[in-house]
Simulated scan of single mutants.
Amino acid sequence: MALDIEHFAKVELLKVIENSDIDAYDLVEDYIKSLDEVRLKILNDELNRNMNNPYCGDIIAKYKDNYPIWDFMEVIPFGRFINVYRFCAETIYDKKLRDNYFLLLSIKDLRNATAHNNCLINNLSPRTSNHRTNYGLIHELSKIGISNEVHSKKMSNARIQQIVTLLYTHKRIIKSDGVINHQSEVLNETITRMYKHIEYYRNNEMVTTNFGFLKTIVDNWYPIV
């Protein structure tokens, strides 16, 4: 789902840029100029590491020092893309892009955790998150009957907050019914697997209530059609 979001976020950003009067080459140049010496070195190191990459090395060789935005996005890592996304949002003065930027920050952490096979439920305690939950997300939770008390407690856990932010952002950004329907099937299979031996956790309220919280969200946001 994070990969879906990355792809469609790029598509959405390019559409916004194409509908503006901003030059695609100037945009990248202005972004690079905005970096201080330390951050510029980090960017150059990222690009240099990909010079021999068979999937994007030729793009770097062709456009080095003069990238259009659509090719620049193909040769930078996800974390860098999020930073570029914010710069574009501020340059174009697009509020929706700026809101998406903060959602993408949360998704990056979850994406990295899953890429490294980290355990996602080794700490479901409340008050572990360092970020406030997105207002639009809170509104969507209230629409499916989740009370302020429940969402405040559950979303104060960093892991749960990131997972639910991923689900919300996927609904917000993805424009393909086929992609959404596919992920709905996968999510419902995941929920079924979570509950296969729910009796194992009968004495662990933290697990059972968080599982129930996620099930309610998936049932309402990603029903099988």
Results as ranks from 00 to 15, higher is better:
55 Y>F: 13
164 V>R: 06
108 K>A: 05
122 N>K: 11
124 L>T: 05
172 R>I: 01
71 D>E: 15
88 C>M: 08
99 D>W: 00
105 L>K: 11
165 T>V: 04
148 N>D: 14
61 A>D: 12
71 D>A: 11
68 P>M: 12
139 H>W: 06
71 D>L: 11
136 G>I: 00
64 K>F: 15
119 C>W: 15
172 R>D: 10
165 T>H: 01
135 Y>W: 07
145 G>E: 11
130 N>H: 10
61 A>Q: 11
130 N>Y: 10
175 K>D: 13
103 L>A: 12
68 P>I: 10
159 R>Y: 08
146 I>G: 10
162 Q>Y: 00
139 H>I: 14
144 I>V: 11
60 I>R: 01
152 S>W: 08
88 C>K: 01
56 C>W: 04
173 I>M: 05
98 R>E: 15
89 A>K: 07
81 F>M: 06
107 I>K: 01
106 S>D: 14
58 D>L: 08
58 D>K: 10
164 V>I: 14
158 A>Y: 10
91 T>P: 00
55 Y>L: 13
99 D>C: 03
161 Q>D: 13
150 V>K: 09
169 T>R: 01
52 N>R: 09
69 I>D: 09
161 Q>L: 13
122 N>I: 11
115 A>H: 07
158 A>C: 05
70 W>R: 10
69 I>P: 00
75 V>G: 04
110 L>M: 07
123 N>Y: 09
150 V>E: 15
68 P>Q: 13
151 H>D: 11
174 I>C: 12
151 H>L: 08
78 F>A: 04
153 K>N: 06
138 I>E: 07
161 Q>E: 15
138 I>H: 00
79 G>S: 02
85 Y>D: 12
140 E>H: 09
151 H>K: 12
79 G>E: 05
63 Y>S: 05
79 G>P: 01
101 Y>L: 04
126 P>K: 13
129 S>F: 00
72 F>P: 00
92 I>R: 03
128 T>G: 05
107 I>H: 03
144 I>P: 03
117 N>R: 07
92 I>V: 15
113 A>P: 01
86 R>N: 08
91 T>G: 04
104 L>G: 04
110 L>G: 03
121 I>P: 00
89 A>F: 06
75 V>R: 04
77 P>V: 01
147 S>G: 06
55 Y>A: 09
52 N>D: 15
156 S>A: 09
115 A>I: 08
163 I>M: 09
163 I>A: 03
73 M>W: 04
82 I>K: 00
106 S>L: 09
136 G>V: 01
76 I>A: 03
76 I>M: 06
119 C>E: 15
112 N>I: 04
92 I>M: 08
70 W>Y: 14
81 F>W: 05
103 L>Y: 01
99 D>L: 04
77 P>F: 01
66 N>E: 13
114 T>A: 08
130 N>Q: 14
160 I>E: 08
91 T>N: 06
100 N>H: 12
66 N>H: 12
69 I>Y: 05
166 L>P: 00
64 K>H: 12
132 R>N: 15
